[in-house]
Design a binder for these strands. Structure first.
Length: 508
RNA sequence: UCCUCGGUAGCUCAGUGGUAGAGCGGUCGGCUGUUAACCGAUUGGUCGUAGGUUCGAAUCCUACCCGGGGAGCCA
């Protein structure tokens, strides 16, 4: 590409060109007919049609301007085809450039995959196969060339491992583009689902005061100079000199705070970032991920299950509706069960079964498990998948788990052997949602905190909720990236979040 | 953290002790409408790093680094 710039003919079209607040390089505005002057356009983005809309509803005869990045260029002797993509859809707009354009030899030939362009012209019916309409290019502005020798994205399939090393460029690929459109549609659907039902979105804190949340290793947050940590007389870190005057961490859950807000607004939800410092190196774990946690007052476990089922059906329907091409792509190229799975979620009533019953079914199963089943142990991934995939062949909600394997805040059932917990198990992925009815009885909750060996003083406000106007309530948690993984069929969670954070990895 | 597989051209990979390869990409040329265009030519490497065995190491050994998959933990 540098060689092209060195050509005298190309150099004559080079000039600094102020463009809005940024400076772009104008490689040339090219007129098909030399008598026609370039028409300066408004730089306001909202005046530019998105390629998605042009492909769906653009009419031949429209004069349009599009902006985007060149995905491919196909050249023949007398004509050049560009596919321009602006991220609004999987498929790009085909642009036809004829050799009689001014500067064709210098500018059009210089265009490479990855270059940024603005092209004006007429939308016409495409005589070729593969697209309804195409853009007959008349003016072309090149904002930036992507040097073909060094631009790492090629017109071929790349491994996801390789694309992960290109976190700043991979969103321009078909698959990651589809992932992030689906992710957006999914987030939008989540808000819409809750807002339609009167839930309030609550921003629970990201920095939390103590580790009483009790769910996994936490990242410490400190303002102390780590090269000169103040010590107490006993040699411990003197947190009284730290920013908050006590140890602080990044949140691992917004649930306890959501419970506070549910005691005022009945139905609330959180949707925000969550952090786990666990050294988990798997395709299903991130150190920073987004979590959705609805919490409902005056609600029991059955109401919780109803909400979880409605929730998944709604999200899947919405995303299929919003991103049909992307979902079709996932089904074709990533996992051919994506659409069947979505259909299964949307059109089946979820099976509901108590843990004790599930264990009996697993014991009777004509199948040998790596981990033998026994009442009292937590279900392994292989057990969950057997229930959802082989036995019921649809989503299964398992309820009433043994008290010993679940968290202290889950409501104790009569007899005390089980708690009102629920896990939604889905074919292909296993647990997708985990939740419970919360313990609303003060005396029971106090006993459970003590039995768990937790510092009861730290929970004074949580216990106050039971002292003052307590109410049965319930909620669940859902890992947002796992939902996106589930919907798209993407195998690695690092490929459904724009900038994954995992142990020893925090690029971009 | 444990188990396991891997690291060779820009990318995807072949090469199991004897002169480092293919496809794709890039570049150049050709081709009147292409669809991951096509055809021809060409470019391209400290074989993850360090040490060792050997006449000779991409290949065998040791350590380390990085990545994939699985497990645990979990969402």
């Amino acid at each position: 590409m540098r060689r092209c710039f060195a050509r005298p003919a190309a150099c004559t079209t080079l000039q600094a060109f102020g463009y809005g607040r940024s400076t772009a390089t104008d490689l040339g505005r090219i007129n098909r007919q030399s008598s026609r002057l370039p028409t300066p356009h408004s730089p306001l983005p909202q005046t530019m049609p998105r390629i998605r809309d042009l492909l769906h509803s653009g009419q031949p005869g429209q004069t349009i301007t599009v902006q985007g990045w060149v995905r491919t260029k196909r050249e023949t002797k007398g004509i050049t085809f560009l596919e321009v993509n602006d991220g609004s859809s999987m498929v790009g707009l085909q642009v036809v450039l004829n050799t009689d354009m001014t500067h064709y030899d210098t500018v059009v030939k210089a265009l490479t995959t990855g270059s940024s362009v603005e092209i004006g012209g007429d939308l016409v019916e495409s005589p070729g196969k593969g697209q309804r309409v195409e853009l007959q290019g008349q003016t072309l502005t090149v904002f930036g060339i992507a040097d073909g020798e060094t631009y790492p994205l090629q017109k071929k399939r790349h491994s996801f491992e390789f694309l992960r090393s290109l976190g700043h460029l991979r969103a321009r690929t078909n698959t990651l583009g589809a992932v992030f459109r689906v992710r957006n549609a999914c987030a939008q659907a989540i808000h819409q689902f809750f807002q339609e039902r009167g839930f309030l979105w609550m921003h629970t804190p990201i920095i939390t005061a103590s580790d009483c949340e009790g769910a996994g290793a936490m990242f410490a947050v400190t303002g102390l100079d780590l090269t000169q940590v103040p010590r107490t007389a006993e040699g411990q870190v003197d947190y009284s000199q730290d920013f908050f005057g006590k140890p602080a961490y990044l949140t691992v859950s917004g649930q306890l705070e959501a419970e506070i807000m549910a005691m005022a607004f009945k139905d609330v939800y959180t949707f925000g970032p969550t952090f786990r410092a666990e050294n988990s190196n798997t395709s299903r774990h991130l150190a920073e991920f987004w979590m959705v946690e609805p919490e409902m007052a005056f609600c029991d476990l059955v109401g919780n299950m109803d909400l979880a089922e409605d929730f998944l059906k709604y999200i899947f329907s919405s995303v299929l509706n919003a991103c049909p091409e992307d979902m079709e792509f996932f089904n074709q190229r990533i996992d051919d069960s994506v659409l069947a799975t979505a259909d299964n979620i949307i059109n089946n009533t979820f099976e509901r079964i108590a843990y004790t019953e599930a264990v009996k079914l697993l014991e009777k199963a004509d199948k040998s498990f790596e981990f033998p089943v026994q009442w009292g142990i937590d279900l392994q991934s292989e057990h969950e998948r057997y229930l959802a995939e082989e036995l019921f062949k649809k989503p299964v909600i398992v309820t009433d788990y043994p008290t010993g394997i679940k968290a202290f805040y889950m409501r104790l059932n009569d007899g005390g052997e089980t708690v009102a917990a629920m896990d939604v198990l889905a074919p292909k992925v296993g647990e997708i949602i985990g939740g419970s009815q919360r313990e609303e009885r003060l005396d029971v909750l106090e006993r459970r905190i003590q039995e768990a060996g937790l510092p009861i003083g730290d929970y004074w406000w949580y216990l106050d909720l039971r002292r003052f106007g307590t109410v049965p309530h319930a909620g669940f948690g859902l890992g947002f990236e796992r939902l996106v993984q589930f919907m798209t069929g993407m195998g690695n969670i690092r490929d459904v979040i724009p900038f994954p954070r995992t142990p020893d990895s925090i690029e971009f």
